[in-house]
Design a protein around this nucleic acid. Structure first.
Length: 571
RNA sequence: UGGGGAAUAGUGUAACGGUAGCACGACUGACUCUGGAUCAGUUAGUCCAGGUCCGAAUCCUGGUUCCCCAGCCA
């Protein structure tokens, strides 16, 4: 079982229990189910997991871990037409990556098909289920509407014997797809439409990714899901709000069968600002080529976040902080980014990288000389140690760190001004070289040899410290800058005739080539996370090859100067 | 308009009849060899109307608004 979620705890204050944990705590205290707590995460293997699933995963596995119980990973694979092994694999990978552990408890609904079938026969024998010959369309007509009651199916009163026979022949494959269903006999005038003789089995001559062609009838979710939980002895069946309407049906099935009856608790799914969360919409983005696959770093999928550079700890911390409730809400993506920065700040090694290089020549530094400067790997973690960064006469600094005519509050380099090169020397800008179009192409500076390491013996101060790389030693890299996928907080809010895709952020990806990074990055491995000092957190993209580095910007550092600039532009 | 849920600062949440608190965001300031981090502070809320009570976010009544349900999807 997963460890106690140390990252998930907020400060040192005692953890307040959300309403789900409160119920579980009370049940355990009261000795319900002998104090046992068994939860489950039951994905359908028909797509990739996203941050919304992470909320459910952290809730279920978190509760199991906190209450000394267990959490099952169960694939709800009852629809062979949509499900694939590929998704099973990715889901397993993602839950593992989030550092949760189901131990032995990996299950598949399809493993229970035989047992579910037996239960169905039992219901038929009790006169509580029947084979119905209505077409899908007729079934819909007979169901009635939200305000009008339905009508009984003409097949509703078949004898138990006939139902048993027909159901057996359904299983044997004697009937074509869609020709018959097995339905529960409940109440066609029930105000809850789920209770109007719901379909339990449909005929589907389709190969299943695990059971192959063993079955040609497949259980419906509403029939199957409660049974799966019951069979596994799930004590607390935690699901999303839309299943609240289905609970009476699950209760009915379980009562008719007189089998173990889990307690269902519903909570609200996660919505995040500036992104979409529905599988349908995410699929559309992938299929329309609006993103580069499910693991595009702009996607809210777990694999996308991983590739973006998110850590499992950041996601777990986020899932703990957003809480659990019964009403729809949209969490500000800034909270996710806060959790991200909080974790990466503590754990990422610092390096220097120049995204948009501007050449600097230190005129009074000896030609051909180079020296190693001592740099701190992570000021938040002394055990991360030190490294050496080569310094020489020709350097690159960030283009944004120089302005010929600096506005108010711009502390960085400008003609005649002195700044510090991090871990190196104080330098003063003495000359600006421009091309024919008046663009600054090179800076000339002088350095003060007595400031080696970055401190002035005379105690003089500089307003700014710049990052830099030695031109001769730097490695070239490609960097992808990411921003929110959508320009609107709620992408679904679109003008008439348009859908959410109209709100895609055209600037969600900017690719920078010719970036210059410090030589220690030559050893960077795929998915390794770094802080590029003063810029943000970056992660090595798996796309890169030996000698051809690609970085994804995970998230920028908080940047007051960018804010000031925006404000100045507005004025 | 049948049934089922739900409403607390801009956002996310706590308070379970007894001072409406926390976090994120935003805004100040301090500090800083990252304009990072850290620290201090400011900002702002109980959907509405009645009622019960010494006392109501909490209990009652009546409204309002939002979400879910008419797949042989899950």
């Amino acid at each position: 079982m997963g460890n106690t979620d140390t990252h998930g705890n907020i400060g040192s204050q005692e953890t307040r229990l959300d309403f789900v944990r409160q119920i579980v705590a009370e049940d355990q205290k009261a000795g319900k189910w002998g104090g046992q707590v068994v939860t489950r995460f039951p994905p359908e293997p028909n797509g990739y997991l996203h941050i919304g699933h992470a909320k459910s995963i952290c809730l279920n596995f978190g509760i199991a871990s906190e209450f000394d119980g267990r959490c099952h990973l169960r694939f709800d694979d009852t629809n062979p037409e949509k499900e694939e092994q590929e998704y099973v694999n990715s889901i397993i990978e993602d839950v593992r990556w989030l550092k949760w552990d189901w131990g032995e408890h990996l299950y598949y609904a399809s493993d229970y098909f035989e047992r579910m079938h037996e239960y169905a026969v039992r219901l038929i024998e009790k006169g509580k289920a029947y084979v119905c010959d209505l077409t899908a369309e007729q079934t819909r007509e007979y169901r009635g509407t939200l305000t009008e009651p339905g009508k009984n199916s003409p097949y509703r009163d078949r004898s138990i014997k006939e139902n048993l026979d027909l159901f057996e022949r359904m299983r044997k494959g004697e009937f074509p797809d869609g020709s018959r269903t097995l339905r529960a006999k409940i109440d066609m005038s029930h105000p809850n439409l789920n209770m109007r003789d719901p379909v339990m089995y449909r005929i589907l001559h389709a190969a299943h990714h695990r059971t192959s062609d063993k079955w040609c009838i497949y259980p419906m979710y509403d029939w199957a899901h409660g049974l799966e939980d019951s069979i596994e002895g799930i004590t607390h069946s935690i699901c999303t709000l839309e299943f609240e309407n289905h609970r009476p049906l699950y209760d009915w099935f379980l009562e008719q069968l007189d089998i173990f009856h889990p307690q269902q608790i519903e909570f609200a799914r996660l919505n995040l600002s500036y992104t979409v969360m529905s599988k349908r919409k995410l699929l559309q983005l992938v299929q329309d080529g609006l993103v580069n696959g499910w693991d595009d770093p702009r996607m809210p999928t777990i694999c996308g976040l991983r590739r973006r550079g998110y850590s499992p700890e950041a996601i777990r911390s986020f899932c703990r902080r957003i809480g659990v409730n019964k009403f729809n809400s949209t969490v500000d993506i800034a909270l996710l980014e806060h959790c991200l920065r909080e974790d990466l700040n503590k754990t990422s090694q610092r390096v220097m990288a120049v995204l948009r290089p501007l050449k600097v020549v230190i005129d009074n530094y000896p030609k051909g000389q180079a020296e190693d400067m001592e740099a701190v790997n992570n000021p938040e973690d002394p055990s991360a140690g030190m490294r050496k960064v080569p310094f020489s006469r020709e350097l690159y600094i960030e283009r944004e760190d120089f302005m010929e005519e600096p506005p108010k509050k711009f502390y960085r380099l400008a003609p005649g001004r002195e700044v510090r090169l991090r871990y190196a020397y104080f330098v003063r800008c003495t000359d600006v070289v421009k091309d024919d179009n008046g663009n600054v192409v090179e800076l000339h500076c002088t350095y003060d040899p007595s400031t080696r390491g970055g401190d002035a013996p005379d105690g003089r101060k500089v307003k700014a410290t710049l990052h830099w790389v030695s031109a001769k030693h730097a490695i070239e890299a490609k960097v992808r800058l990411y921003d929110h996928l959508f320009t609107k907080e709620n992408p679904a809010e679109s003008d008439a005739g348009e859908d959410f895709k109209a709100n895609l952020n055209p600037k969600s990806l900017e690719v920078l080539a010719g970036c210059q990074v410090e030589p220690s990055l030559g050893r960077a491995r795929s998915l390794q996370r770094y802080q590029f000092e003063r810029l943000g957190y970056f992660c090595v993209d798996p796309d890169g090859t030996e000698g051809r580095l690609v970085f994804n910007r995970t998230v920028s550092l908080r940047d007051p100067w960018a804010r000031i600039q925006k404000a100045q532009q507005r004025d």
